[in-house]
Design a binder for these strands. Structure first.
Lengths: 224, 224
DNA sequence: GCAAAAGTGTTCGGCGTACACCCATGC
DNA sequence: GCATGGGTGTACGCCGAACACTTTTGC
């Protein structure tokens, strides 16, 4: 950053921390009406056997955004989804003498498009948000911030596009919203509000699946 | 962060960047109905002679929050004000070979309580937001993010408490809001909305200042 | 009494919420 | 024809926005 450092710009430099900078990616999906998060089982100390948010160091020649995109791709195989910076944690560190900074991001993925990395060590797995295993470090805190942000984002953005396939029914969309908000929504009000928002548009297509009236398919306007 | 790093946790560690982590503090105040930001004139390369957001390295034994509080106190003498993390920039760096990460914070201060650091080199000065000097690095971007966040915060929090003295008139409060939002507000609607919000409460006191009706003084409820 | 800022109420439109019935299809 | 989920309309309360006159003081 090389900005000034009050009285003694050079002197204070000697005391500057040179921590590892890591990115953490909180990856959410919605499956069967349940909000889930991707966690990795730690196969080595510290916190061996506990589960943690996927993350890793920012590499040389890489921006933080690129590191986040790479991490997401490594774990899920997906790119080009909702991914945005969340918060930077300075105190998640298991080894305080060295210092570390975790720049957390959060991502939304459609579960059908995900191919989880097939590892036995550092194994990734989806976990239901209201039934999490013991987490490493302060990862509960990070997930909590991410969840709050997600709920807010849903109110005024079309972030949900990233949780659904290109075409979907109103019911599927509503289930995603309900899973995230954690409460049931009124079908008529939901439909009216979403259509008025201009986030989604109707397609000419319908989908028949069962012995009942076929459902209109919609798509997100931003994904034309 | 010592989380896993995909296949080769140890190997990738060798390529990890060890950047300097700096905090930047975007310090806002409102003076005479104008939103201002505190900038520092750079007295050395890089970007000598340009103005920059106050900032500096996070020191050993210091959390990021503490570094932000310290920076704010060094420049303004104030503590115990609105201060919150904004965004982390990975690409503000003047020296890419070394790498640096800037964790930006933003603060709101009451101008009367500020005692600017008296330096001739790295001199701090208030600048009107719509009349900024040439800035170092990408500091315009940072200020822009901070301003947007401030506008949003104002809608649903009592953040303005930090821009006003303990007691103030409705007009003073409204001027702060107008300076930040950049547009005039209706006096009656403003009064009604703020009182309904429960952010502020009336005190028994009034202030007479001029040949007109004295104004009721209010205070923020959170600052009891 | 007059200049100057403080203080006060009502109307209207939009939006979120509550709520119940008909429609299209498969079997 | 009946079971199943898809699809639709109305009424109400709240909130933000627009808008003009009276009150209290100093001089």
């Amino acid at each position: 950053m090389t900005t000034e450092t009050s009285r003694a710009p050079i002197a204070s430099r000697t005391a500057a921390r040179r921590p590892i900078v890591a990115v953490l990616v909180v990856i959410f999906t919605v499956v069967d009406g349940a909000l889930q998060v991707l966690l990795i089982e730690r196969s080595a100390a510290p916190a061996e056997g506990r589960w943690a948010i996927p993350g890793g160091a920012v590499l040389h020649g890489e921006t933080m955004d690129e590191a986040a995109v790479r991490k997401l791709a490594e774990e899920t195989g997906v790119t080009d989804v909702f991914l945005e910076q969340l918060y930077t944690f300075g105190d998640l560190d298991p080894s305080p003498e060295e210092g570390s900074v975790g720049v957390a991001w959060f991502a939304l993925v459609e579960s059908a498009s995900v191919r989880l990395a097939q590892r036995t060590a550092w194994r990734p797995e989806w976990w239901n948000l209201d039934d999490l295993p013991p987490l490493a470090f302060d990862n509960e805190q990070v997930i909590d911030v991410a969840r709050t942000r997600l709920i807010n984002k849903l109110q005024y953005t079309d972030a949900a596009y990233s949780l659904l396939p290109p075409q979907f029914t109103m019911r599927e969309l509503q289930e995603v919203y309900e899973a995230i908000l954690g409460r049931p929504l009124d079908k008529r009000n939901f439909r009216r509000r979403l259509l008025a928002s201009d986030f989604i548009v109707a397609t000419p297509e319908k989908r028949t699946d069962g012995r009942h009236r076929p459902a209109r398919l919609y798509r997100f306007a931003s994904r034309s």
